[in-house]
């Protein structure tokens, strides 16, 4: 039961969506793009999210693609995680996504929604960070293609009125060997204590992490250590010494314990990919 109401729009094209956003804003509204909408519904209920003009992008064809074009796999931002899992075009993404929330909820949660979420785990972004994905973004200035590392810093830095349309990922990353584990406080349910995703490309490790800091990240500094010569322990110590801050210290687990878990997971990732 949301304590507020909104106008609801279902544009059929990107152009219409973007123009609608601008128009509504000019009218003094607080428009919001909506694909799965699970955050607006659940956080709105407890007064942590608000919109009075919802623009549902699920009917826009570009937001629903899932296909290769040349060497690139395009995945629409409005596809549900379940749809992506069932089709399984990107095994690492499938594996990471399949640990988000639960199966039924993933039928509603979308790729774009997860990446742009307020809740800071945003795990679906991890494979994209590792795979040098390109993001197709549409906004008042038209469509742009941006390398994920240039626009995802802790969160997706969208400007007002911009919308994530698709992700594009090169085939060689999709076919690269990978490793991923989601470790929770206990058993198989709940937010991540640590979710780690790792990939080996051009003989180099890449690693991205959610749950360690209040944002998901890929750390090239940590990777540099992991890719050095030396004992496993030294390499991991090095990687742990250059982690971003702050380390989460909350009800899911203390900072020190998270580091303990991460150390072991890094070890497992290295073993699996070496």
């Amino acid at each position: 039961m949301l304590p507020f109401d909104f106008d609801y729009f279902q544009p059929k094209s990107l152009k219409e969506a973007v123009e609608l956003f601008r128009y509504l804003e000019q009218q003094g509204k607080q428009p919001m793009f909506f694909s799965g909408g699970t955050e607006l519904i659940t956080l709105g209920r407890i007064d942590l999210a608000f919109s009075d003009a919802v623009i549902d992008i699920k009917n826009i064809p570009e937001c629903k693609v899932m296909q290769y074009s040349g060497d690139y796999l395009f995945i629409g931002g409005a596809l549900s995680l379940t749809q992506i899992e069932e089709a399984n075009p990107f095994p690492l993404l499938t594996k990471v996504a399949s640990e988000v929330a639960d199966h039924t909820a993933r039928g509603k949660i979308t790729l774009g929604g997860n990446i742009c979420a307020q809740i800071f785990y945003r795990e679906a972004v991890l494979p994209l960070l590792l795979a040098d994905s390109q993001l197709l973004i549409v906004g008042p200035e038209g469509v742009q293609t941006i390398h994920i590392n240039d626009i995802f810093q802790q969160q997706l830095k969208l400007k007002k009125g911009e919308l994530l349309v698709q992700t594009a990922t090169e085939r060689r990353f999709i076919e690269a060997p990978f490793f991923t584990v989601k470790r929770r406080q206990q058993w198989d349910t709940g937010y991540p204590l640590i979710t780690i995703a790792a990939l080996k490309i051009d003989q180099e490790f890449r690693v991205a992490i959610s749950g360690l800091c209040p944002f998901p990240f890929r750390s090239q500094e940590a990777e540099a250590y992991l890719n050095r010569q030396g004992s496993m322990e030294e390499r991991i110590d090095g990687a742990l010494s250059v982690l971003p801050k702050p380390i989460l210290d909350d009800v899911e687990g203390s900072a020190q314990y998270r580091l303990f878990v991460l150390r072991n997971l890094l070890y497992d990732a290295l073993v699996a990919l070496e």
Partner: peptide
């Protein structure tokens, strides 16, 4: 965040 047992656990 308060988590009863789930199927399969």
């Amino acid at each position: 965040t308060y988590r009863p047992l789930r199927y399969g656990e």
